[in-house]
Design a protein around this nucleic acid. Sequence first.
DNA 1: TGCCATACTTCCCGGATGGATACCATGGCG
DNA 2: CGCCATGGTATCCATCCGGGAAGTATGGCA
Lengths: 135, 135
Amino acid sequence: MARSRGRRAGDDVSPGGPDVFSADCPSRLVVERIGDKWTLLVFMALRRRVLRFGELRDLVGAVTPKVLTQTLRSLERDGLVTRTVYAEVPPRVEYALTDLGRSLLGPIDAIRAWSEENGERIAASRAAAAARVGA
Amino acid sequence: MARSRGRRAGDDVSPGGPDVFSADCPSRLVVERIGDKWTLLVFMALRRRVLRFGELRDLVGAVTPKVLTQTLRSLERDGLVTRTVYAEVPPRVEYALTDLGRSLLGPIDAIRAWSEENGERIAASRAAAAARVGA
DNA sequence: TGCCATACTTCCCGGATGGATACCATGGCG
DNA sequence: CGCCATGGTATCCATCCGGGAAGTATGGCA
């Protein structure tokens, strides 16, 4: 025991930020939030205009209704999109980004810019590693 | 059939970018890459200096050696960190960010800044929704 | 002859994630 | 009466991610 776990004083790892290593670090919250399979696509689809459920489903592509519903409900729960139901027949439901959701487009675009510049490098490195294993 | 799936011409969803909806969209690649449980912590830990396996494990906290190894190997595979083994006894292994990895710190910081500003809003919205269900 | 430290690896397991398929509710319309 | 469209639910299932506990390899040292 007494195996000195955790950070010692002087381990200044984060320049000017709060504790980056706490389990509930806000960066992790957000990255996990947008890190699932369909969220980013939904954001891209809603970036320009309000969309109905079916439009979203067709735009995003291979998503099943169950999973799309899950994604949208969780985004609504987190205050990033709104869900508006019109009492018509057949039913009409519209989804839109909230202000909060729209403000997240900035950081997302930072990722996107980096990805478009460097994504190939990652893919290449990954492919090279796979080739080494395969050979 | 013939149920008009997919985008139609004129659905200009992405301002100036390539196809955001392709399955291998680079943004998704990167977000999935950093979206797992420990990658962000490893990045934060390695941002300032090279670290040994044990240092990393102690800094990050509750990660088990198996999972930390997995995380590091996949980061190495993708060209984001280097792994240097010194043939000593007991063994010494050092991990460091590559240039590519360091360049990713920029976008990560964009997320971090947004998170520190807005993370609470998400948490609050989520808590409010949970309270509505619980009540 | 053990014992130590480091940096793993192996095995097994449980929970979460996402997918396939089928079904449901409403009310206008023919 | 039965069909249509929309926007979902319900049910079941395969896969994956991560976790716990224990084992491995090396060689110096007491």
